[in-house]
């Protein structure tokens, strides 16, 4: 990704103290293209379950992210949960996957064969590719910038996007509510037993609070001109548009996907997921 001049004038910097990987090159991408690119680079591993295309994607993505300035340590740390998930998926595949070739071990429903082991390897690679692109491209994505992009670039309805954004902000309040509800139940002598019933009453109370808060927030937004009548003429204080960085990103992703699929087809490992 080449260093293109930032096209977004007046765009606010991400809030200080946010744990973001230092990757200025990736930050030049519009959040919407980060979202779409994540889906796009997943295509090869979704249409074919083979080790070659997945390996090429994994190595390619890693190289591109390194070149874009994402630190290896950052990637490794964020990949830990993904790696655990990949191993679990691989073990399942090895034990219960469709048998074929040499049988190495057999016990009741469990059959470990050459084929199931190959598939397990492919599954690990596949999950790692999906995980790596998601944690790097979507990790630390700024929700506000994302909303700007969805509304201005993808032209999703402003009322929908901004409503969802405002709603997201209330999640932290719900966590506080939940904690207080739990404390209140302990204070009322209901904290010792019957956890499921207690959670049910807390969930109901939380729903009531959520609806109330939502209603008040909607009123506050309406009072600031957020209504059907003004929706069409709305302007955006923070412009969100696609720039050269996004074009470069798409070009790189296209190349990666094409190379990995072609290699798999030429080498004969291509195994489309049809069934």
């Amino acid at each position: 990704m080449s260093a293109t001049a930032a096209t977004r004038s007046g765009r606010a910097a991400p809030p200080a103290g946010d744990t973001k990987p230092a990757a200025p090159a990736l930050d030049r991408l519009n959040p919407v293209s980060r979202l779409l690119l994540t889906v796009f680079v997943a295509l090869p591993v979704l249409i074919s379950l083979d080790w070659l295309s997945a390996s090429i994607m994994l190595v390619g993505l890693f190289a591109v992210f390194r070149a874009a300035g994402v630190r290896t340590a950052t990637m490794a740390r964020r990949m830990i949960p993904v790696a655990v998930a990949a191993l679990l998926a691989a073990v399942t595949m090895a034990l219960y996957g469709k048998p074929g070739g040499t049988v190495y071990w057999h016990w009741w429903l469990v059959v470990i064969t050459q084929r199931s082991l190959t598939m397990a390897g492919a599954v690990i690679l596949r999950v790692l590719v999906l995980g790596l692109s998601a944690v790097v491209l979507l990790g630390g994505l700024d929700l506000t910038a994302m909303a700007d992009g969805l509304a201005q670039v993808l032209r999703l309805p402003a009322r929908f996007v901004l409503g969802a954004l405002a709603g997201m902000r209330m999640l932290s309040l719900f966590l506080e509510d939940w904690r207080t509800l739990g404390q209140a139940r302990r204070a009322r002598g209901l904290g010792d037993t019957g956890r499921l019933r207690r959670w049910a009453t807390m969930a109901f109370a939380l729903l009531v609070f959520a609806i109330r808060r939502g209603t008040r927030l909607a009123t506050a937004m309406e009072a600031r001109g957020f209504d059907a009548q003004h929706a069409r003429n709305r302007t955006w204080a923070r412009p969100s548009r696609l720039g050269r960085a996004d074009a470069v990103g798409v070009a790189i992703a296209l190349t990666l996907v094409a190379v990995s699929l072609t290699a798999a087809i030429v080498a004969g490992t291509f195994a489309p997921v049809t069934s």
Binding site: G225, D227, R234, T235
Partner: peptide, 24 residues
């Protein structure tokens, strides 16, 4: 808490202006 709309204070103040169609 019920009337904070945005994640950043600048965006929050700008919200009404945007809705009214003010130029950036």
């Amino acid at each position: 808490d019920a009337q904070v709309i945005s994640q950043r204070i600048g965006d929050d103040v700008a919200f009404g202006c945007e809705n009214l169609g003010m130029a950036r």
